[in-house]
Each structure stands twice: as C-alpha cells, then as structure tokens.
Design a protein around this nucleic acid. Structure first.
Lengths: 340, 340
DNA sequence: AATCATATTGCAACCGGTTGCAAAAAAAGC
DNA sequence: GCTTTTTTTGCAACCGGTTGCAATATGATT
C-alpha cells in the first residue's frame, strides 16, 4: 500500500542505499541520483518510516510526556506549550496519563518498549525518585516543575518553591496582615512541602504575626473549597496563601459563599498565574510561575541530552514574581502618592 | 545496554523464535521452554521492543490524538479521558497540537511516518475534510466532536449540534424570554453553524420572540467577554445562548462588569457542562455534552477499526440534556407546586 | 514396537530502514 | 593519456523483532 525504500529504489533504478542516503542529511549522493530518487519519491508519495529508521539509528524522535495532573487547568497550558515546543524541534510527544500511579516501573518499561529518545516528567506532585527511575534505565529525563536538590540526579527545571513560600510570607507581612494561613496542596507533594517551609520560615522573621496552616487533598477547586469551609468554621484569619491558583479559587468560592468579601474581609494570594487568574471575576493576586520559560528550557535541555546523554545533571530555576490584582490589600509601599 | 531477543535466546539456550513465541499470545511453545525463556527474560529485564515488532506485525499500538483546542478548559477533560481510555486498551496516544494548522497533509504524512494504528481527530472546529484525509491515506480515523453527515465518509462521534440549538431555543422560549440572542463560537466551525441553525430554525416556531445573533472569534473567555461588551453597547437582550461554557463565562463576566445581574437582568445558557460550569461562582445553566460517553465510544470505535479497517463509517450521536443551575429563570413547568 | 497424528522447534526470510566497506566511477594531477 | 586521489555507489550485514515452513520431538494408537 504505502511506498517503501525498495519501491523507490526500483522506480529510480538505483540501490536502496542510494535512496536512504538521499533522505539522510549529509550523506554522500551525487546530484544526478538525488534528482532521480527525489522524482521517484514524490511520484510515489514516499516518506521514510521513522520507526524503522529508529531501529538502526536508535533515535525515534519520540519523547514521553508524563503527567499526573489532568484536573488543574494550568496543565492545559502546560500541554499546549510542551507539544508546541517539542513539535518545533521535530520531536513527538507520547502522552502518558499517570492518574493514581506512583510507581515509575510500569512507565519506564512501557516507554523503553517504545524506544523513546527521552522523557519529560511534568509534575510538581510526583516524588523525585520517579524521574530518577528513568535515568537509571538509561533514558534521558527532565523533571519539569520538580524539586531542586543539592546533589541532583536528574535535570530539574522549575521554580524555587521555598523562595516562593518566602515571597508569599513577605507579601502578606508587608501588607500588614497579622493573622494569616497557609493552605497547601497535597501534603506529600514536594512543591507543597517546599512552599510550606519557605512560608513558615520567613514568617518567623516577621514579629507578631499569627500563622496557621492546613493542607487540601489535591490541587483542585473542590479541595480548596472544602478545606476553606472547614477553616471558616474554626474562625477565619485575615489572609491566606494558597499553594495554587485553582485552590485559591476554591477557597475564594467558600469565602464568598459564607457572605464574606475578598479582599475586604479575607485576602487571598495564589500561585501560578494561570490564564484564569486574570479573569475579571477572580482577579486573583498571585505569584507568577514562568511556565513558558520553564517549558522552553525543559525542551532545550531534553534536546541537549539527546546529543550528550551523559550531560551533568543541571538544575534550572526561574524567578517568580508577584502579580498584583485584587485579592489582597494594596502594598502600602507601592501606593500611588496622593498629590499634595 | 538493554536486553534484546537475542540475548534472551542465548541465555535461555533456545532459538530467537522460541523467545518471540513466548511473548506472542497464542503461539506454540512448550511449557519447558516457556519457563526457560521467562526465567532468562526476567533476569535480563527483557521486554519486547514494540516498534520493532510493529515492523512485522504492522501494529504499533500508537494512536494519533489530534486537536487544535488547547485553550478551552474542557479539553483538559477530553485529554484526560482519551489518554485513560486508550491506555486501558493498551494503546498509546501520540499527541498532535494543531494550533493554527488547517491543512491535514502534514499531519497525515507525519503520522504515517510513525505508522500509527489509527487517528482520533478531537475537535469541533476543524472541517470534516480533515478527518477524511486520514481515511484517504488508509489510516483508520474517528472524528470526535465532529459534524454529522448524511453520507459519512469517516466515523463521527459526538452530539447533534442542530438538536442542541433547538433544545436551547425551546429552553429559552419556555422560560418566557421574549428577546434573545445567540452568541456563537467561530463562524467557520461546523459546531457553531449547526448550533446556530438549530437555534434559529426552532425559534421561528416560537411566536413573538425577537432573535439576534453574533459570533465570537473563538471558543474562549476573552472572545466571549469582548463580544458581549459590544452587544451590551447595542442594548442588551433578556437572555443569550452561548455556544460553549467558557464563552458563557466570558459573557457573564462582561454582564456583571456592566453592573447587571445574571439571571435577573440577563439570562445565560451555556453548552458543554464542563467541570467549571458547576463551580458555585458561575453556577451555569448549560446543555450537558456527554463527553465521557463520546470518548468511550470513540475509543471503542477506533479499536474496532483496528480489527476491521474497512468497517462501514458510522455516526454515533449522543443525547444532550439541560443542566439546571442558576443562570436562567426557572422553568415554569417544573416549579415545585406550592402547597394549597 | 511400529505407525501415525500432533506439538514444538529452529532455520531463514522478511518488516523498512541504515551504514561500513570495498569496488566503481569521476575528478585531479602530471 | 595514464596514474592518483576523491567521490559515489551497491553489497551485505545489521537494528529487534515475527512467522511460514520443514524438521524434529512428543504422545497416542494399535
């Protein structure tokens, strides 16, 4: 049905090698045969089979894209960017949905069976060992949105979650909140832990602030809302730092349902700056996570590893910044001076 | 590095065929050699290379999953379900991001180069010819969320968008709205056109209702909001049927910003029933599109085609239903009767 | 124990490509 | 024009599997 190397070779009256070389950049073919081959190839609609090629070249241009987060809208942005970034570099994402799976072994085996050139683990909730399992299997891997380590075993691209926690603490402190809460995502996620530590640590430096904390069961709307409904019962604080935007929106929803106002009664600070955070109805003040840069960098890194598999593991952290919107009191330092 | 058939054969002291047959369900191997092979295989951590196998069996278990919609949150649900559904059946999604691409040829060639077993075109905005191009290339294809045709060339799974339009018209009419609007998605999307026709056609049957219409540039929040800001300038109607939930949310946002109330001043009816539509802050009355069923059915269909490639093209439409929430006046017929 | 049916096995060719190597062809040098 | 160097070419082996077929081993039947 579909034309193969052999068909083209026969039609062009050359050897199979000649055809192969015509489609291999840098190979030695005379202009004459190249023309011959190209003519035959277009007539037959021939395109080399990448998987067969991969058998000898050991490169399939397939990249495993693994995630366990198919409920947080920010991951649609993540998939969009990753697929585009990979496609631009001639790589193809093999999407793996890891819902409820924590053991990397199945994924490693499966992706090995597909001879993927590399793997991107895109998750802030999987344990670091997950990505390491791919490295141990000899598969180039980048852990995007993962945890920074002082002796990294794999490439990590993301943000400094501890620093984000500190930034959140400062942000609330400088606005004069005296009774604040931390509403984290799942307790076992490294991102939650790091944000928590950074937040608590920094809060200790600010005198006279009362700090409480709790953890939602997931980075999701429902979890945030449910958690806040509990907290409201215990008596609300002045402001909350939520470990994620969609969590913040859940929290906000519970606050409003209780007849309280954001930010007048309760301030909310998110993290991620997903598209929706900017929607007027939410207008969420949040810490921007530079996902475009994280993803570009991840893709570059995976490409670099394809060329140099033993590249020394690198950690690339990108700075976050506060996006001022309407769910916190204004920063007194940045008030527009009133005219005298 | 990684063990191959040959390594296992040598270690087990049998021929390569014996090993291959051990991993081929239904092949003839004695218990003795099977044990031998299995022992050697586990010791070496051997797993057959699926792509090499695909070369002879002509089945890679790869399925192209093509979409052009990476900005509408409902597509995260779609990807979640598709990846899970495919994985459960041992198929692997090769994700293709079609942003701004309408010509199917590149995608066809690329997916042919990867010998995908089939393709799922998941989009309500691509023209039907897109999916047909795969069929013409001899690749099994299912068009999910596509347009129904009386002489279908490819399998289509989705909803009857014309019927949805009619349902929307009836829904608004029965609630006594007299001046209504249709806010569609992009004009050239088949889903927009069908919903539009159904809506207008059915509205004609309801006497004395004033109908207007317009189209947003995309199925997105911004587009909905921008479109509604225009419409508000022209003098608002009593209720709008929006071609999609995220569009509805954009519309709602514009309405609220203008100081108007939903549903007291303006009613809004959405379509899709994405997760977010149920969030208390939106509480969107909407037409539920049964995506779980559409996706299950699509996956079943693609699986069926792998066994029987020349299967006659089928159209599978699933019924939609109104989800009553809080953005329309109540249906008078369904009012809880007041006790006498 | 001999005969026949059946189950298991290995050989070798094939799937669709790539590539080292030696032979052939073309170009360069004299 | 002949030799030497360089370029181009095809052969054949290989990548990691599968599979038809004939040969061999096993088991059943008498």
């Amino acid at each position: 049905m579909v034309a193969t190397l052999k068909d083209v070779a026969k039609k062009a009256g050359v050897s199979r090698s000649a055809v192969s070389r015509t489609f291999t950049p840098g190979a030695s073919v005379s202009d004459k045969t190249r023309k011959l081959v190209e003519k035959a190839a277009t007539e037959l609609g021939y395109r080399p089979n990448i998987l067969a090629r991969g058998l000898s070249t050991r490169s399939t241009k397939l990249v495993g894209l693994i995630s366990n987060n198919f409920h947080n809208p920010i991951f649609l942005e993540v998939f969009d960017r990753f697929t585009q970034g990979l496609q631009e570099r001639g790589l193809r994402p093999l999407l793996v949905n890891l819902t409820d799976e924590v053991d990397p072994r199945n994924s490693v085996q499966m992706l090995r069976q597909y001879s993927v050139d590399g793997v991107i683990v895109a998750s802030s909730t999987l344990p670091p060992e997950f990505a390491v399992a791919f490295r141990d299997a000899g598969i180039p891997v980048v852990n995007s949105f993962g945890r920074y380590s002082t002796e990294p075993k794999v490439h990590v691209v993301g943000i400094d979650n501890v620093a984000c926690g500190r930034m959140a603490a400062d942000t609330l402190a400088v606005r004069g909140y005296k009774r604040v809460g931390f509403v984290g995502g799942p307790r076992d996620a490294t991102s939650t832990q790091d944000r928590f530590h950074g937040f608590m640590e920094q809060m200790e430096k600010h005198r006279g602030i009362d700090v409480q904390f709790s953890f939602a069961s997931a980075y999701s709307y429902e979890a945030g809302r449910a958690e806040m409904q509990c907290l409201l019962g215990e008596g609300p604080l002045e402001a909350y730092f939520c470990g994620d935007d969609v969590l913040s929106i859940g929290v906000m929803s519970a606050v409003r349902d209780a007849g309280l106002s954001v930010p007048d009664d309760i301030g909310i600070l998110g993290l991620n700056d997903m598209e929706m955070a900017g929607w007027e109805i939410f207008n969420l003040t949040t810490i921007h996570q530079p996902i475009q840069q994280i993803i570009n960098s991840s893709v570059e890194l995976i490409v670099a590893m394809l060329e140099e598999p033993d590249r020394y593991p690198e950690t690339r952290l990108f700075p976050c910044k506060i996006i001022e919107r309407g769910t916190l009191r204004p920063d007194p330092a940045k008030q527009v001076p009133v005219e005298a």
